[in-house]
Simulated scan of single mutants.
Amino acid sequence: MPASSNAAKAAKLAAKYGPHAVAAAKVVGPAAKEAVETQRKRVANRNAAFDKARGLAAGSVLRQREGDEVVFVVFAGDEPVAAYPEVVTPLADLVKRANLSQRVTPEQHDELRVSKRAGRAARKIASRAKSSTKDDPKELGSGS
């Protein structure tokens, strides 16, 4: 498709749906911005917890909830030593009824991240291969 017809199509869509997009952004924008900021803080806290656990003997991290907040509790052996973000609740009370078998070591966390990344890359490659065979009629068997 020529670039000029793509530009014309984009202009038509912008004229048709632009006002709706602006209205939706005004309504949803602040909530979306807050959700993104919450997730950014959660990732920063998780990374800080695993960095702390790497420096400890037998360090591990347990994800807990305190109210509406996700807290990452760092353990040295079986003793809780820190929480990210910091909480007012004593660590012993925070993990009193927790399932300690769900703690994750920094090495396990790294392995999980690598395997998830590899899975995403494999799916992306498969998706690209699938879409390229759609475009090539010889691959579909319609050619001679």
Score class of each variant (00 low, 15 high):
Pro2Ala: 03
Ser4Glu: 14
Ser5Pro: 01
Ser5Phe: 07
Ser5Glu: 13
Asn6Leu: 11
Asn6Asp: 03
Lys9Phe: 06
Lys9His: 05
Lys9Arg: 05
Lys9Cys: 08
Ala10Asp: 10
Ala10Gln: 00
Lys12Asp: 10
Leu13Gln: 09
Gly18Tyr: 04
Pro19Gln: 03
Pro19Asp: 08
Ala21Thr: 06
Ala21Tyr: 02
Val22Cys: 05
Ala23Phe: 10
Ala23Cys: 07
Ala24His: 01
Ala25Cys: 04
Val27His: 07
Gly29Asn: 02
Gly29Thr: 10
Ala31Glu: 15
Ala35Met: 15
Val36Met: 14
Glu37His: 04
Glu37Gln: 14
Thr38Ile: 10
Arg40His: 04
Lys41Arg: 03
Arg42His: 04
Asn45Trp: 01
Arg46Ala: 01
Phe50Ala: 08
Asp51Thr: 00
Asp51Ser: 07
Lys52Pro: 02
Ala53His: 08
Ala53Trp: 00
Arg54Met: 00
Arg54Gly: 04
Gly55Arg: 00
Ala57Met: 05
Gly59Lys: 01
Gly59Met: 00
Ser60Cys: 09
Ser60Tyr: 02
Ser60Arg: 09
Val61Gln: 05
Leu62Thr: 10
Glu66Phe: 12
Glu66Arg: 11
Gly67Lys: 11
Asp68Ala: 12
Glu69His: 06
Val70Pro: 06
Val70Cys: 10
Val70Met: 06
Val70Lys: 03
Val71Pro: 03
Val71Met: 00
Val71Asp: 04
Phe72Trp: 05
Phe72Ser: 07
Phe72Asp: 08
Val73Thr: 10
Val73Leu: 02
Val73Phe: 09
Phe75Met: 04
Phe75His: 07
Ala76His: 02
Pro80Glu: 11
Pro80Leu: 00
Val81Asn: 06
Val81Ser: 06
Ala83Ser: 11
Ala83Thr: 01
Tyr84Leu: 08
Glu86Gln: 12
Pro90Trp: 03
Pro90Ser: 10
Pro90Tyr: 06
Pro90Cys: 09
Leu91Met: 09
Asp93Tyr: 04
Asp93Pro: 00
Leu94Pro: 14
Arg97Glu: 15
Arg97Ile: 12
Ala98Gly: 11
Asn99Val: 03
Val104Met: 10
Thr105His: 02
Pro106His: 01
Pro106Thr: 06
Glu107Phe: 09
Glu107Met: 06
Gln108Glu: 15
His109Gln: 15
Asp110Gly: 07
Glu111Asn: 11
Leu112Met: 12
Arg113Ser: 15
Val114Asp: 15
Ser115Pro: 09
Lys116Ile: 12
Arg120Ser: 11
Arg120Gln: 13
Ala121Ser: 13
Ala121Pro: 11
Ala121Phe: 13
Ala122Ser: 14
Arg123Lys: 15
Lys124Ile: 11
Ile125Leu: 14
Ala126Ser: 13
Ala126Glu: 15
Arg128Ala: 13
Arg128Cys: 12
Lys130Glu: 15
Lys130Cys: 10
Ser131Leu: 12
Thr133Tyr: 11
Asp136Ser: 10
Lys138Ala: 15
Glu139Gln: 15
Ser144Leu: 08
Ser144Pro: 14
